[in-house]
Amino acid sequence: MHSFAITAPDRGMENSLKHKVDRKTKPPGALGQLETLAVQIGLIQQTLSPSLDRPQMLVFAGDHGAAKAGVSASPQEVTWQMVGNFLNGGAAINVFCRASGIALSVVDAGVAHDFVTVDGLIDAKIAHGTASYLDQPAMSAAQCAEAVGRGAAIVRQLAAQGCRVVGFGEMGIGNTAAASLITHALTGVALADCVGRGTGLDDAGLARKQALLAQAAGRWQAAGGDAAPLAVLAEFGGFEIAMMAGAMLAAAEAKMVLLIDGFIVGAAALVAARLEPALVDYCVFCHRSAEPGHRAQLQALRAEPLLDLGLRLGEGTGAALAFPLVKAAVAFLNEMASFESAGVAG
């Protein structure tokens, strides 16, 4: 299996960063979470003057075998159709990335469709969707390891090109169900508290989703209920979730800033953090999803997100929307006058 050398940022310069923040022309703490964020990014980059070079959004797409059983309100074909929408520039994530100045690439991790080669699409397909975790593990251990490795390779190439901040998004009909099962298995929070409406299930659809996921969880428990992170990932995950986990691990290893979106991206982050706890130090948790299981993830990761807008779209939209705040945190650290430079009594 892949190994990653992830260490927590050296905190030797933390006091210097905090002093720089505190001497800005403002009352101490007046910029709230932006101050914490500025210090975090300074520690990640080990500098008093951080920069957010070549920001990149990666949207990982994959299909789930269980989607055919009705765990989602949308048909599986929507996955590849939305990938086409991303590539044509017409989705919410395209709009928000353009507005926030983030480059966007779509990763075919395992969509049940064959795409033609086109700019902006990274072909990393493991298979045409996972198996159904209602009957068997979603992927083999070998497939899971391959997905993790391919995700890591994508980010290592970005790092070599000078990228210092990477956002994570996803697309995959049925992946809120997979994220619910992963969250339940890794946190111990009751499954019912991890399951939401996804793309818009009505009450009957939600009840069906809960029953199907209870079936999947029961099958896993009957097989021994191995709660090791990679075992859970292979049991319930999608190729897009596994590939994101690998990409996150490589990004933290490269000391990049990780923009973590909502519930499905959070499931990948939960897996990655259980493998390498120091990964969390490199993560900016961008928003609190309306999906109920996201709260369990955030609590497990001890994370306080930047935004709480009731979002539940996925795609990386919360990360793209939060990026201007990340830029603002770095900008005030680098550009705002100090009491000394401004001649203001502090």
Rank of each mutant, 00 (worst) to 15 (best):
H2K: 13
S3R: 14
I6Y: 01
T7C: 09
M13A: 12
Q33A: 15
V39M: 09
L43T: 06
P50E: 00
S51Y: 08
L52Q: 02
D53I: 07
P55R: 05
Q56R: 15
V59C: 11
D63Q: 06
A66F: 10
A69G: 03
S74N: 11
Q76C: 11
V78E: 10
T79D: 09
F86P: 05
F86K: 04
G89V: 12
N94H: 12
N94F: 11
I102A: 02
A103C: 08
A103R: 14
V111R: 03
H113E: 10
V118A: 13
V118S: 12
A124H: 06
A127D: 06
A131T: 07
L134F: 05
Q136K: 13
C144H: 04
V148K: 00
G151H: 00
A152N: 04
Q157K: 15
Q161T: 14
Q161N: 14
G162L: 10
F168D: 00
G169W: 03
E170F: 11
I173A: 03
N175T: 09
A178R: 00
A179T: 03
A179E: 00
I182Y: 01
H184G: 02
A185N: 03
L186W: 02
A190K: 09
C194Y: 08
C194P: 10
V195M: 05
G198I: 10
G198W: 06
T199I: 09
G200F: 13
L201A: 06
A207Q: 15
K209G: 01
A217E: 07
G224T: 09
V232P: 00
F236W: 08
G238R: 02
G238C: 09
F239E: 00
M243W: 03
M244D: 01
L249E: 03
A252W: 01
K255V: 13
K255D: 13
I260V: 15
G266N: 00
L270Y: 01
L275I: 04
P277G: 12
A278T: 09
A278W: 08
L279P: 02
C286R: 03
R288G: 08
P292Y: 15
H294E: 11
R295F: 11
Q299E: 15
Q299K: 14
L301K: 02
P305Y: 08
D308K: 13
L311N: 03
E315V: 10
A320E: 04
L325N: 05
E335G: 04
S338C: 06
E340M: 10
